[in-house]
């Protein structure tokens, strides 16, 4: 189970790293190389984003990656095959990140069967709150997969505990308002918010949105269980190429 894996890893590491790729961007071959670089450099969990044509929670960089992957003809079936291969090669948890329609169109039950068959540990669906996703939650949980819910600074304490009850694996705390890819100010304000998150759940907590360098990771160490690096690795790949990913990850902690 995802949660016990995280607890186990945390005994050895002060903070875990979760990274993100958009499957098919820049290409499936490059994605494979990126996953390799990430895993051998010590990444603990990976998010594989199945591209969607209308990714409303994503900022310009990830949005464009979604579009380019789709223009290259990436299908949901391609993403499943890719995830399956990665899981066979690398023994870390992989999660799907995608939007509600991708799962809805495939059929929630069929989608979750594929996750189970291919060894995918859980999923993050930013436009599927528990109010709309009871079927999703029960199906994942019944199959020992984790529905991962999101906290935002605008989430009330009461709502945080509700989300915690429905979630499993860990809670993904977004550091600020807005979409992926913008700057985050790692400051005391964030501490107050993280204390609220901690108090609301017994699940491990991850923090994402704007995490990009060693200083950010140092700031987060001791405060959260997992740091999430999203847009920054896409930028590294775009600016410096696939081989720059390994050194970048190794330099984070």
């Amino acid at each position: 189970m995802l949660e016990s894996y995280i607890q186990h890893q945390r005994k050895q590491k002060d903070i875990l790293l979760m990274t993100h790729i958009v499957v098919g961007y820049p290409s499936l071959d490059d994605c494979e190389k990126i996953v390799h670089e990430m895993v051998v450099s010590g990444v603990d969990i990976m998010e594989l984003q199945i591209p969607f044509s209308e990714p409303i929670a994503d900022g310009p960089v990830i949005l464009r990656a979604n579009q380019m992957a789709l223009e290259e003809g990436i299908t949901v079936a391609d993403c499943f095959d890719f995830a399956k291969r990665m899981k066979q090669k690398y023994d870390i948890p992989f999660l799907y990140m995608t939007y509600a329609n991708i799962m809805h169109k495939y059929g929630i039950h069929q989608f979750v069967s594929r996750m189970v068959q291919d060894g995918i540990s859980g999923s993050i669906i930013p436009d599927l709150p528990p109010e709309e996703g009871m079927d999703y939650i029960t199906t994942l949980k019944a199959n020992s997969c984790s529905p991962i819910f999101i906290y935002a600074p605008t989430t009330s304490d009461e709502r945080m505990s509700m989300l915690s009850q429905h979630g499993s694996g860990f809670i993904y705390c977004v550091a600020r308002k807005g979409v992926t890819g913008a700057q985050t100010n790692f400051s005391n304000d964030l501490d107050t918010y993280l204390n609220r998150c901690r108090a609301a759940t017994n699940l491990p907590i991850a923090l994402g949105f704007g995490v990009k360098d060693r200083a950010d990771i140092e700031f987060l160490t001791g405060k959260v269980d997992i740091a999430v690096i999203g847009t920054q690795t896409l930028k590294i790949v775009e600016d410096q190429g696939v081989t720059a990913v390994g050194p970048y990850i190794r330099d984070l902690r």
């Binding site: 409303i56 929670a57 509600a100 930013p126 436009d127 599927l128 709150p129 109010e131 709309e132 819910f149 999101i150 906290y151 935002a152 600074p153 605008t154 989430t155 009330s156 709502r159 989300l163 977004v174 308002k177 807005g178």
Partner: peptide, 11 residues
Amino acid sequence: GAFVPEVLTAT
């Protein structure tokens, strides 16, 4: 329905 990202639920 209301399939909204968490950050907007309060809004």
